[in-house]
Design a protein around this nucleic acid. Structure first.
Lengths: 228, 228
DNA sequence: TGTTTTCTCGTCATGACGACGATAAGCCGC
DNA sequence: GCGGCTTATCGTCGTCATGACGAGAAAACA
C-alpha cells in the first residue's frame, strides 16, 4: 500500500552564523575540501540524520563543525532552499538556520571542517561562496538586521551581562551606521521589561563606568528601533 | 565516490491558504481520504517532484488540489517542519507555504481533494487537524497578522482595485478587531506610494461612494500600523 | 589639578497617532 | 422633494516617541 515510489531527497542544514568582532559583523565560513566547489568558502552545514529534528541537526552541526556551543546565543530557522540544480550531484533540500553568537574566545576551533574563519560580511562578495550560499547568507544578514528593530535579539551577540554601550555597538555593527548614544540609552532603558539593572557597574578603560544590565522578560520592542 | 548512503527523505509542500469571507478570516482545508488521519481536516499539499522548485511545487499543488490559481494573491514560503515522528509512515520534511488570496468566486472547486472547504480560523480548534497542521496553520496566521503591520500585503486579499473600506475590512478580519475608519483612512492615504487613486469611485450600496485605489510602488509601511 | 573620555539625564521641536467632531455625498422611505 | 440614515473624507486636539543637542557625572590620564 505504501509503495516507496515517492521522490527521495537529501536534506541538509546550512548555518548562517553571525557574530560581532572588532565593531564589524562577521559570518562564520568554512573552506570546502571536496568537489564540487573544492577550495571555495561555504556555509557550515551537513546532512540531517534519519531520526533527528531539524533544529537538533542545526545545533549538532554547529557544535561539530565549528566548535560553537549554542549555550549562549540564538538559533532559529531561516528558510529552505531547494532549487533542483542547486547541487550538481543530487537533489538536495537545505533548511538554512540563523545563529547569532557572542564573540567566542576560541574563534574557529573546528573539529571537522578543513578550515573555518570569521569573515566580515561586507567582504564576502570578494570571495564567491559555494552553491547558493551567497543568497542564503544575504537572507540571514537581512533577517538579523530586521529583527534587531523589534526584538531583544541584539543581546544574543553579547555576554549574559552587558552595558548599554556594548548593546549599542552591536546595533552599530549589524546596521553599519552610528546611533546617538543618548537617544539609544533612553530608548532601551525606558522600554519596559527590556533591561534589568544588575546594580553592578563596570569601567571599560576610559570614561565613566557604565551600569551593567541583563536581558529582561520583554520579547518585543514596540515601537521598534528604526534603522532608516 | 558518491555512495548513495545519505539519509533520504520525502519532501512535501503544505499550504496555508487564507482568505477573507463575510468579514472573517478563513483557511482552506481538505478532508483526508486516506490513512493515517482518514477523515480528518488537513492542509492541502503534496509531494515535491524530482525536478521541481519548492515555490513551483506550492503553486502547482495550489492549483491542482484547490482550483485556486495564483494569478491574484500572494505566495511565500512560511517555514519547514521536519520532526522525525510527524508522519508515522515515513520521514517527511514539509516546506509550508503561505497563500493570501482574494475571495474566489469558485470557493472549493477541488480537482483532486475529496472535499475542500473554507473554515473560519477561529473555528478550526473545534476540528483537530491532521499531523502537525494545527501548528503550521497557527504559524501561518500569525505570519499574516504580523505582515499586515508593515507591508502592503493586505491588498492580496482584495481585487486589483479596491476602496479604503475594503482594505480596512481585511485588517479587521485578519486582526479580529475594529479600526477607526478615519485614522485608518489617514494612515493609508498619506503613506507615500502605498495607494494610487484610479479616479473612479464606487458606491457599495448605502453611503457616500468611495474612491477606488490600486496598490502603489511602496513595499513597506513605515512606521507600521499597530494591532496593539 | 586640569583634560579627555564616556555615561547619563534634560530640553526642545517635530511628527505620528488615538479619540473624536464635522462635513460631503450617496441611498431610502414617504 | 425632503428629511433621515449610512458611509466616506477632512480637521482638530492632546499625547507620546523621536532626533538633535546641551550639560552634568564619574572615571582614566597627563
Amino acid at each position: 500500500m505504501d509503495a516507496p515510489d515517492w521522490p527521495r531527497f537529501a536534506v541538509t542544514v546550512d548555518l548562517v552564523v553571525l557574530t560581532v568582532r572588532a565593531g564589524r559583523l562577521h559570518a562564520l565560513l568554512v573552506r570546502r575540501g571536496e568537489d564540487p566547489w573544492r577550495g571555495a568558502w561555504a556555509l557550515p552545514g551537513g546532512f540531517v540524520r534519519p531520526d533527528e529534528d531539524l533544529h537538533d541537526a542545526a545545533a549538532r552541526e554547529l557544535a561539530e563543525e565549528t566548535g560553537v556551543h549554542q549555550a549562549a546565543g540564538h538559533l532559529e530557522q531561516l528558510a529552505t532552499y531547494g532549487a533542483p540544480d542547486r547541487d550538481p550531484r543530487m537533489r538536495v533540500v537545505s533548511v538554512a538556520h540563523l545563529v547569532l553568537a557572542p564573540d567566542l574566545p576560541e574563534p574557529t576551533a573546528g573539529t571537522d571542517a578543513a578550515a573555518a574563519a570569521w569573515v566580515p560580511v561586507d567582504e564576502v562578495a570578494a570571495a564567491p561562496l559555494a552553491f547558493d550560499h551567497a543568497r542564503i547568507l544575504a537572507d540571514g544578514v537581512e533577517r538579523a538586521r530586521a529583527k534587531l528593530e523589534y526584538s531583544p535579539l541584539a543581546a544574543a551577540f553579547c555576554a549574559e551581562e552587558f552595558t548599554v554601550a556594548e548593546l549599542r555597538a552591536v546595533y552599530e555593527a549589524v546596521w553599519g551606521r552610528t546611533l546617538d548614544p543618548r537617544n539609544f540609552h533612553r530608548k532601551v532603558t525606558t522600554t519596559p521589561g527590556l533591561l534589568v539593572d544588575t546594580g553592578e557597574r563596570r569601567a571599560e578603560g576610559r570614561g565613566r563606568p557604565a551600569a551593567v544590565y541583563r536581558l529582561g522578560p520583554a520579547t518585543t520592542i514596540a515601537p521598534p528601533l528604526s534603522r532608516d
